[in-house]
Design a protein around this nucleic acid. Structure first.
Length: 263
DNA sequence: ATGGTAGTAAAACTA
């Protein structure tokens, strides 16, 4: 972190193997120091690390067969790399990486989606946010530079979905999911995109593949977030959702979200 | 209210 400018991004790749070419191209075009990736969908021995390293990025990852999987790509070599929740319950290692880049602590999460509100995975999702808050309490301070980034599977506010009334029973916009996410944020996080775009509607990071022409019709969700403790919020000069990248060939259903900091 | 597509992985399962 020797530059004055530091860029961190988050991206749900929906298969790192399928999306690798455009991830590499995007990194070359966007001067990003750290990229947090979710839904890599590969086991560790199949992770395409070499191509990423050839581009000058270090990479740490933890995956499983078919589903979930997380990775962090960084120009500077990370330290203190830990996978998963560590409270004795299901560690969910393919959903959480935490590490340090110099003085900056980073936690990358792929929060459980929850399937349906009446499914046991929805209760698991709500509990996951509580467990995550405890992890922050245990390992970090609100006064230290800390970033929490990832696919949170929660659109926090009505402005973050295209149809708040119709979607209130969806697992990503249910009041209980929003409350659980908020409780974890309340530990000491600022939503860095909203910080810079307080009233801007229709800024979405996810468009359902199953909805025809969802992007053109504006039928999106803002569920991918970069949050920071106040030391990072103070350093954050801008944040944006890269909708241009969403127009790439074979796009993921999610889009890169970027935050920029001055040091 | 349901189903739509993409990806994994080789028939359903997840999102």
């Amino acid at each position: 972190m020797s530059n004055d400018r530091f860029r961190l991004a988050t991206y749900n790749a929906n298969s790192i193997r399928i999306r690798l070419p455009q991830i590499l191209a995007w990194l070359q075009d966007n001067d990003v120091d750290v990229l947090c990736v979710q839904e890599t969908k590969v086991q560790d021995h199949e992770f395409p690390a070499q191509e990423i390293q050839d581009l000058g990025y270090h990479v740490v990852h933890r995956g499983q067969k078919s589903h979930a999987g997380v990775a962090v790509l960084s120009r500077e070599e990370p330290t203190d790399v830990v996978f998963g929740l560590d409270d004795g319950d299901e560690p969910d290692e393919a959903r959480l990486i935490r590490l340090r880049i110099g003085e900056l602590a980073i936690v990358n999460t792929y929060v459980p989606q929850g399937r349906k509100v009446d499914h046991e995975m929805f209760a698991y999702k709500l509990a996951w946010f509580q467990r995550l808050r405890k992890l922050f309490e245990r390992h970090y301070s609100v006064q230290e530079p800390l970033i929490w980034a990832g696919d949170m599977n929660v659109a926090p506010e009505p402005i973050d979905v295209h149809d708040p009334k119709r979607l209130a029973k969806h697992v990503d916009f249910h009041p209980d999911a929003r409350e659980a996410f908020q409780q974890t944020c309340d530990w000491g996080f600022v939503d860095l995109f909203r910080l810079h775009h307080p009233d801007e509607p229709e800024q979405y990071s996810y468009y359902d593949y199953r909805v025809p022409s969802a992007l053109d019709r504006g039928l999106g969700w803002r569920v991918d977030h970069i949050l920071g403790t106040s030391p990072m919020a103070e350093r954050c000069t801008d944040a944006w959702i890269d909708l241009e990248a969403r127009r790439a060939e074979r796009p993921s259903d999610h889009t890169m979200v970027v935050a920029e900091f001055s040091y």
